[in-house]
Design a protein around this nucleic acid. Structure first.
Lengths: 219, 219
DNA sequence: GTAATAGTGTCTGTGAGACACTATGGT
DNA sequence: ACCATAGTGTCTCACAGACACTATTAC
């Protein structure tokens, strides 16, 4: 049963920075494509990893130093031509984190690139990024997914802007505020008020038991 | 780079029979679990298969003798405990065919089981079936997916009944007929009329360029 | 004629969208 | 006082749902 298949995971790690959707890329340390920017990825270790999700968590921790609160399997890419080493299969995941978790580190050198301007990547990583961005956008139209790009506490205006940045369209404030509470995946944090130059705003957080709420309507 | 991972594909093949959603199961010829009912599946052959989709097509052809007009990747299942032979990874696919394509064959012995009453299956095949059924139901609420369970030509009433069988709810005839044409994934076949005991019905077919139409509303 | 299925017309309530409005802070 | 942002009220149009209606066949 000699299959000679290279089995790995790759992770598309999204964050929102400077009002743009961005992903984490890092310079490959080894061949093939040593020195080039690519997605965080690595072999599945059958001796260490419970399953491919655990592999993705391990890769993410090793390469970016973080544990993502949201990590979901995206799609599996495979074939004989995607990796010069031979027939390969990669289970792709995508993750969402708030920018503050991406602390620059001398050891872990990663870069943030806008999804709209990702450079040419080795393997079929551009295809993976496109697939992930489409999934994120599609799923954001009918789920609470964008919450995971925000810090733990956030205002409704910030949440609305997050949806707008991902979807690329302006949303009506009144409509947005009417719909979201009905879906009750948010809870107002008592006495938590965002102070600013103007009228203070109520802070909300994602209900712990509602990490991904699916709406029956579009947002 | 000795990974010792068993890499395979499994296929959940759906059809509609006797007004019920059913799947194809077959008796395993080899160990492990020889003689037991399980999903059609097999190793990925790196020397033969272009990618895992090609593996799924080959497995389907070998085990059921058919080429499915609709075949989509479902999810990848993996881990150290799902197969007694060791750490394994299976890319699961699901397919939809009209009942007429499932011709019983002396060589290829497969059985049709209602999704609502699938027996205990080896590996994590019950989980795969559940995942596939959920995907089919979810996706049927906002896409033209159920078309693929019908023959090439069908009436609007048959299409409506197909949606009803999958979704498990009754739909209003008038609403259904108002919505579907707007989505123009169907075309009326000129002079093709279904004759029966009563008023004849116009026959439709899926537009070849619209194999999977995604609605912006629910059906 | 009746029965049965195909296919259409019409009313109504809900809710998305548009947008004007009020509220509350800083300066 | 004014500005900026937070947050709400209200009108309208579109459309899903309900259901009654017409149309066309077999008998």
């Amino acid at each position: 049963m000699e299959q000679n298949i290279i089995v790995s995971v790759d992770v598309v790690l999204f964050t929102l920075s400077e009002g743009q959707l961005k992903i984490v890329l890092l310079r490959r340390e080894r061949d093939p494509y040593a020195g080039q920017l690519a997605l965080p990825g690595g072999y599945i270790h059958a001796d260490k990893d419970r399953d491919s999700l655990a592999s993705a968590e391990r890769v993410l921790l090793n390469k970016t130093g973080l544990v993502s609160p949201y990590l979901e399997q995206l799609y599996t890419f495979s074939g004989g031509v995607r990796d010069p080493r031979g027939w390969s299969l990669s289970v792709a995941y995508y993750a969402l984190v708030h920018e503050s978790l991406l602390v620059p580190d001398a050891e872990l050198r990663f870069e943030l690139w806008p999804v709209a301007a990702v450079p040419d990547l080795p393997f079929d990583h551009n295809r993976i990024v496109d697939h992930a961005a489409k999934r994120l956008r599609d799923k954001s139209t009918y789920t609470s997914l964008p919450c995971h790009l925000l810090p733990e506490l956030f205002t409704l205006t910030e949440l609305q802007q997050t949806y707008e940045h991902i979807l690329g369209v302006a949303l009506d404030k009144s409509v947005f505020r009417r719909k979201l509470p009905e879906l009750d995946f948010l809870e107002a944090v008592p006495d938590a008020i965002r102070q600013g130059k103007h009228r203070p705003a109520q802070l909300y957080r994602l209900r712990p038991d509602r990490r991904l709420t699916i709406f029956d309507k579009t947002v």
